[in-house]
Write a protein that binds this DNA or RNA. Structure first.
Lengths: 343, 343
DNA sequence: TTGTAGGCGTTATCAG
DNA sequence: CTGATAACGCCTACAA
């Protein structure tokens, strides 16, 4: 069996209390004693028992990350947010991340998160929300005194602390960019119906609003349906680019749809951006690698994760419940796929 | 403060032992007592203390997942393996997954994994290896009695249990597919140098070997360098498709490079697959969405994860150390980008 | 069917 | 600076 503090104590002719003090870097131990204890610990290959430590200190040392894994785990969005978490939680606090799938059977309800905390499985929770109208989010009731921060989408309950970004403004910026280049016939490929994806309707509304504010009188078919997939983008692109008056620019509500629209342009022998400008939303890693590279909207996923982690960490340190909604700014990445229209 | 077993016991006029029995579904408790205890537990909002339970039972309830998060967390490969884990570990064992980043500073060495186990932070470990010549993997010494399984790549130490797949065979199958279609001028776009990516050299060797076995006398430039990126695939594709004799088929060692090669073909006004067949390796989710869809090699990531989890679970249940190397079969997904050559 | 006693390994408190 | 003692909340073993 493994050595425990008592074993070291016996070997050194002290009590386990002294050993405990040495190992937890308590200052008040004579240097000689300290050295003897440390040497003995090494010799006996002592490893602290994390379970006992947790029990005694009443802290699990885990921070839970709750997310719909099927939808997000494999994507760059989650990866960036996670990276932000790691940057935001100081290493020396010694926290480890535990992954929970909000889509799993045992998680049909957001109240499960409070349980994890009350049962001391986790010391705090970071929820990575899907950019959707997630029923799960609605069940987050703002449990009292649970250190929890939602990152990625603003939950319905105002009592739940969150960090999100202004996605509608991204579309606005994109519209403004194209408008300032001289585009007046700007088409839009929208995302899935709003009952599934909350952000889709926000993006579309931002487009509509912009057009109205500039007095652009687009035919109704300038706004084509889509479902975020490449195939739907291609189909929508074909419709838009075959009909007249042909739009000089297309904004797709996701990069994947923008890629599809690019394919459709190629099929019709239209050059990008000379014949038509195309822009997306998401800034997928491949957006920069395309030829031409894609102008798109970049969400500050890393920064959102980092901010969420900072808020949680502060709550963990002070014991105050996190609160409030942080909305971060979003930006447009201008690349080769957009340029001034032909004339 | 939260209610504990003792509180329930006092309320019910029994001892905490009876309460413990009720809550852990021990059969020998009178129905009336059981009901009273359960009611009281609910009334007092009792939540079991996971920390105390872990300490007492000497099981953390966590399974560690160790992986280079920067490289893998955002990719479909990791997501599939993780999904496999979840399928492979029975829900009713009540395990939670804890994420560890093998690239983090604190993890410069594989011996850290054994520590996690000895310190009782985790009950077992699943290592998701990068498909590279990972220095980290070499440091896995096959620590005695640590329930650990490596999934994705075969580690250098034979004492470390692993589940991987025969990637070279994937290239073989791809070559055979093209050969049987009638292709004789088959070119190859390879991955990064072998000192970085172990799988790259295996894939290339499989191609070379196949050509030799069929007596295909390709010029040396039929094997172009690449680095797994879309851009490098496009550059290699341009070289291959401009020179003579032009290959009738191109195998790229990754889907991303295959996508690049497809772009290069389009730039040269070559049709796929009529003028040139193109195949990849990875079966990225977008491979099926492309137009034309991409013929590629599919790694059984989900099955590998599942298998790894099963092995670990068995070890957890029996106490035996996992051992041996499982190599799973790999398959080719034939789609639209490959067809018989023109003549 | 229920109760009693003790242990798990560490940290906190207070005394010396 | 160090030690004795108790406490943390649950579980196992044994006794009644």
């Amino acid at each position: 069996m493994h050595a425990k503090m008592e074993d070291i104590a016996r070997e050194c002719g002290v009590t386990k209390m002294t050993v405990s003090r040495v190992l937890s870097h308590h200052p008040s131990v004579k240097a000689a004693t300290r050295k003897k204890v440390l040497d003995t610990a090494k010799r006996l290959r002592y490893e602290p028992n994390a379970l006992a430590k947790s029990f005694s200190s009443n802290r699990s040392g885990f921070i839970g990350i709750a997310t719909p894994t099927d939808a997000l785990l494999g994507g760059a969005y989650f990866a960036e947010i996670f990276k932000g978490f790691r940057l935001g939680i100081a290493d020396d606090m010694g926290y480890t991340f535990a992954l929970f799938d909000t889509n799993s059977d045992s998680f049909n309800d957001g109240t499960k998160l409070g349980k994890l905390y009350r049962q001391k499985r986790v010391d705090g929770l970071l929820v990575v929300a899907q950019h959707t109208h997630d029923r799960f989010l609605d069940t987050l009731a703002g449990d009292h005194h649970v250190p929890m921060v939602v990152v990625g989408e603003k939950p319905s309950s105002p009592r739940v602390c969150s960090v999100s970004c202004n996605d509608a403004h991204g579309i606005e910026l994109l519209c403004a960019h194209l408008y300032s280049l001289g585009h007046r016939r700007i088409a839009f490929i929208e995302g899935p119906p709003p009952e599934y994806v909350a952000t889709a309707i926000r993006r579309k509304n931002a487009y509509t609003k912009f057009c109205k504010s500039k007095g652009l009188e687009n035919p109704a078919w300038y706004c084509q349906p889509g479902n975020f997939s490449m195939g739907s983008g291609r189909a929508a692109g074909l419709v838009l680019l075959k009909a007249r008056p042909r739009p000089t620019a297309i904004i797709a509500a996701s990069d994947m749809m923008a890629f599809g629209a690019m394919e459709s342009a190629r099929e019709l022998n239209l050059r990008i951006p000379q014949d038509v400008s195309i822009a997306g939303f998401d800034d997928l890693p491949t957006a920069a690698e395309r030829c031409p590279s894609l102008t798109t909207v970049h969400q500050p996923a890393l920064e959102m994760g980092q901010r969420g982690a900072k808020i949680l960490q502060h709550s963990l340190n002070t014991g105050e419940s996190p609160s409030g909604h942080t909305v971060m700014e979003i930006s447009v990445v201008i690349r080769e796929s957009t340029a001034a229209p032909a004339s």
